[in-house]
Design a protein around this nucleic acid. Structure first.
Length: 590
RNA sequence: GCCUCCAUAGCUCAGCUGGAUAGAGCACCGGUUUUCUAAACCGUAGGUCACAGGUUCGAAUCCUGUUGGGGGUACCA
C-alpha cells in the first residue's frame, strides 16, 4: 500500500504546497459498512492546510483517483477518505505475490538469536506452568526462525541444590530402593514422589519441635531432616562419591522422564546446559567486576553491587563463604552461552516472578561493559493459576503435564469417535490423530493468550474443541485438504483476465496477503498469540467463503474453479505454516 | 512501605504505533445439511472498556491519581 502513501504525500504537496512526513498519512482498512478497501484518516493532515477535514478528503480523493491508476473511486465520511482500489490490483496481488513459490519462503536476516526455555528443576515432574513455558519457548523460537533469524534453542537444567537433596534424602530413608522399573513409575514422577514425602515428614518434625516449645522459625531450622539435607548438599559440593552417585542415578531417572514429556509436547533443544557445570563459573565474572570497580567487598568478604542510583537495591553477588548464589551462576552462564554461540540476541523465557532478577542481571552485565548485554531479553510470562490458587509441587496441588496431555488426547479420541468420520483409519493412524487434536487444543489454548497475562485454568472445565480453538483451525485445514484432493487440484494460475472477486474472496486475498507482516510483527513482540489470533481469522473467513460459494468441485467455469481452488490452497498453506509456528500439527483428515 | 504487572460481555479472550457505531468464542435462544467434512455457517440477546481527572479535533488505547488482584522486594532457584 506504499503507493497510496506516496500518492497522498504528493497530493498534499501539489494541492497545499506542504511537505509532509510518511507517518502523517494514516492508513487503515476500510470498515465493512463503507465502500472501499483502504481508508486515509485525514485529521493529521488538517494542520497542513486551511480547509476542513471533509474538503481535504475530497481534494486528496480526487487527486488520487486522477493520478494513481489503482485508485478507482472514493467516498468521504466525516474525516475519513475511503478509497476503492481497482479489482485488478487485488488480482495482481494474489497472482503475483500469494501464488508465487517464495510467498512463504523465509528470508534470512543473518542474525543469530538464542532462546532459553524450559529450564526445569530435577526434583519433580513438569506441571502446567512448565507446559506454558515449554510451548511458549518452542513457539517463540519457531516464530523467530520464520522471521529469518538463525535460532539456537537451549535448556538450562537446574540439576543441583537443596531441593534435589530433599528428594534424594527422602528416597534414601523411605525409598526401599524403589526404581522406575520396580515401581512402574515414570522417573520424574518417582523422584517427585519423594520430594513430597520429604515435605510431609519435614512438617511432622516441625510440628513435633513446636510442641516442645520451639517457635516456627526455630523449628524450621532445627528439624533434623533439613539439617541432613543441608549436610548432603555440602557433601555433594565436596564431591562425596556416594552422594554424587545417588545424585547421578536419580537425575538420570528424571531426565528419562523429561525426555518422554518433551517428546509428547513436541519440543526440543539444540543444547543443554547444566547448573552443576556452570554454577562456579560466575566467580570469574565476580573477580572481573571487582577489578573493574563495579562490585565491592564487604568486611565479611561477601561481594555486592550497589544499584541504588538505578532505582534498585544493593544486591549480593557472592556469599561471604565464597559460594555462588543464583545471580552469580547466571552471570557465568550468560558469558558461557555468548562464548559458545556469539549470538546477537538472547531470549530468556522465564516466568514474571523473576522480573526483578533479570532486570538486575542485565544491568550488571551492562555495567561490566559486555557488548552483548543489550541483546538480552527476558520474555516474561504470567503464571498459570488454578481456581484454588497457585500450584505447589510440594503440596501436590498441581496439574501434572503428563496427566493433562493424556486427558486432552482422551477427550480428542472421544469427540472424534462421536463424529465417526475416520472409521477407515488404522489404529496407529487413529492414535496419531487423537494426539494431534488433543495437543492442538492444549497448545492453542495456552498460546492464544498474550504471554504476559496470567492464565486461569479450571481442570473442571475441559478445554474447548469448538470456536476459537486449535481443533477448529485444524478442522478447517482438513476440510480444505479434502476438498483439494477431491477436486484433483493441480497448482496453476487461473486465467485471471476473467476473474471477478466476490467481497469475501477479496477479504480473503487481503487477509492472506498480510501473513508475512503478521510474522514480523509477532516476532517483534515475541508473541505467538498474534499468530494464533491471525490464524483464527483466516479459518473463520475461509469457512464463511466455503459456505457462501456454491460447490467448487461442480463449478463449470474453468477459470473460476481454478481461482477458487487457488484461494483454498493458499489458505491451507498459510494455516499449516502458522500452526507450525505454534508447534501444532494439522491433519489431512479429521 | 517501595517496585512491577494486570483490570474490556455471565465465562475465556482479541482490539497493532490514539481514529468511524468496542469485536470473537463459550454458555443461552432461534435458524441452516437430497450439493465439496455441521469440530461448520447465519441470526437474537448480552458492555458506564474498574473508578476519577488530564492531554487531543478524537482515548479501551497516552499521562496522573484512586480502588481491586498477581508477583517481587532472601547469603532459595
Amino acid at each position: 500500500m506504499n503507493f497510496i502513501i506516496a500518492g497522498a504525500i504528493k497530493a498534499v504537496k501539489e494541492l497545499y504546497g506542504q511537505e509532509i512526513a510518511e507517518n502523517v498519512i494514516n492508513l487503515q482498512e476500510t470498515r465493512k459498512e463503507f465502500e472501499g478497501q483502504v481508508t486515509i484518516v485525514v485529521f493529521p493532515i488538517v494542520r497542513f492546510s486551511k480547509k476542513t477535514p471533509e474538503e481535504i478528503a475530497k481534494d486528496i480523493g480526487s487527486y488520487l483517483q486522477q493520478n494513481v491508476a489503482e485508485v478507482e473511486g472514493f467516498n468521504v465520511v466525516k474525516g475519513f477518505l475511503n478509497l476503492v482500489i481497482a479489482e485488478s490490483y487485488w488480482i495482481d496481488l494474489f497472482n503475483n505475490t500469494l501464488l508465487q513459490p517464495d510467498f512463504l519462503a523465509v528470508k534470512s536476516r543473518g542474525e543469530k538469536v538464542m532462546v532459553e526455555y524450559s529450564s526445569p528443576n530435577t526434583n519433580k515432574p513438569l506441571h502446567l506452568g512448565h507446559v506454558r513455558n515449554n510451548l511458549l519457548g518452542y513457539s517463540v523460537a519457531e516464530l523467530l526462525k520464520a522471521d529469518g533469524y538463525d535460532v539456537v534453542k537451549v535448556n538450562l537444567v537446574n540439576d543441583r541444590g537443596i531441593h534435589i537433596c530433599k528428594s534424594m534424602l527422602a528416597w534414601q530413608k523411605w525409598g526401599n530402593n524403589e526404581t522406575p522399573e520396580s515401581s512402574g513409575l515414570k522417573g520424574d514422577h518417582l523422584v517427585g514422589k519423594y520430594y513430597v514425602v520429604f515435605d510431609k515428614e519435614y512438617k511432622k518434625e516441625i510440628d513435633a519441635l513446636k510442641a516442645e516449645g520451639q517457635t516456627e522459625d526455630e523449628a524450621k531450622k532445627n528439624a533434623p531432616l533439613i539439617k541432613a539435607a543441608q549436610q548432603m548438599l555440602l557433601q555433594w559440593e565436596q564431591g562425596d562419591a556416594e552422594v554424587v552417585s545417588l545424585w547421578k542415578k536419580m537425575n538420570g531417572w528424571v531426565y528419562a522422564g523429561f525426555d518422554v514429556t518433551y517428546k509428547k509436547l513436541g519440543v526440543d533443544f539444540d543444547k543443554y546446559y547444566y547448573e552443576s557445570n556452570t554454577y562456579l563459573l560466575g566467580k570469574d565474572t565476580v573477580e572481573e567486576g571487582l577489578a573493574k570497580g563495579v562490585f565491592f567487598k564487604k568486611e565479611d568478604g561477601s561481594v555486592w553491587i550497589d544499584l541504588t542510583t538505578d532505582g534498585l537495591d544493593q544486591k549480593l553477588v557472592l556469599r561471604a563463604d565464597g559460594t555462588s548464589v543464583y545471580i552469580t551462576q547466571d552471570l557465568g552462564t550468560a558469558q558461557m552461552k555468548y562464548d559458545d554461540f556469539g549470538m546477537d540476541k538472547s531470549i530468556y523465557v522465564v516466568g514474571n516472578e523473576q522480573d526483578y532478577h533479570f532486570k538486575v542481571l542485565f544491568l550488571i552485565l551492562e555495567k561490566l561493559g559486555k557488548s552483548w548485554a543489550k541483546g538480552l531479553y527476558h520474555l516474561s510470562y504470567g503464571m498459570v493459576d488454578l481456581p484454588s490458587g497457585k500450584m505447589k509441587s510440594r503440596e501436590g496441588t498441581v496439574v501434572d503435564a503428563d496427566d493433562l496431555v493424556a486427558e486432552m488426547v482422551a477427550t480428542a479420541k472421544q469427540k472424534t469417535e462421536e463424529l465417526g468420520k475416520i472409521n477407515d483409519f488404522s489404529d496407529a493412524e487413529k492414535e496419531e490423530l487423537y494426539a494431534t487434536i488433543g495437543l492442538g487444543a492444549l497448545k492453542y489454548f495456552l498460546l492464544k493468550v498474550e504471554p504476559k497475562k496470567r492464565l486461569l485454568f479450571d481442570p473442571a472445565e475441559s478445554i474447548d474443541f469448538q470456536g476459537n480453538t486449535g481443533p477448529f483451525i485444524q478442522y478447517t485445514h482438513a476440510r480444505i485438504k479434502s476438498l483439494l484432493s477431491k477436486a484433483n487440484y493441480q497448482f496453476a494460475p487461473a486465467d485471471y483476465s476473467k476473474i471477478k472477486l466476490s467481497p469475501t474472496e477479496l477479504e480473503m486475498v487481503m487477509l492472506l496477503a498480510k501473513y508475512p507482516t503478521e510474522i514480523t510483527e509477532a516476532a517483534k513482540a515475541y508473541s505467538p498469540a498474534f499468530i494464533a489470533n491471525y490464524l483464527y481469522e483466516v479459518a473463520k473467513l475461509f469457512n464463511k467463503f466455503y459456505h457462501e460459494v456454491p460447490p467448487i468441485i461442480k463449478e463449470e467455469d474453468v477459470a473460476v474453479k481454478q481461482h477458487r481452488l487457488n484461494i483454498c490452497k493458499i489458505a491451507a498453506d498459510v494455516i499449516k505454516s502458522g500452526m507450525n509456528i505454534l508447534g501444532i500439527h494439522v491433519p489431512e483428515r479429521m
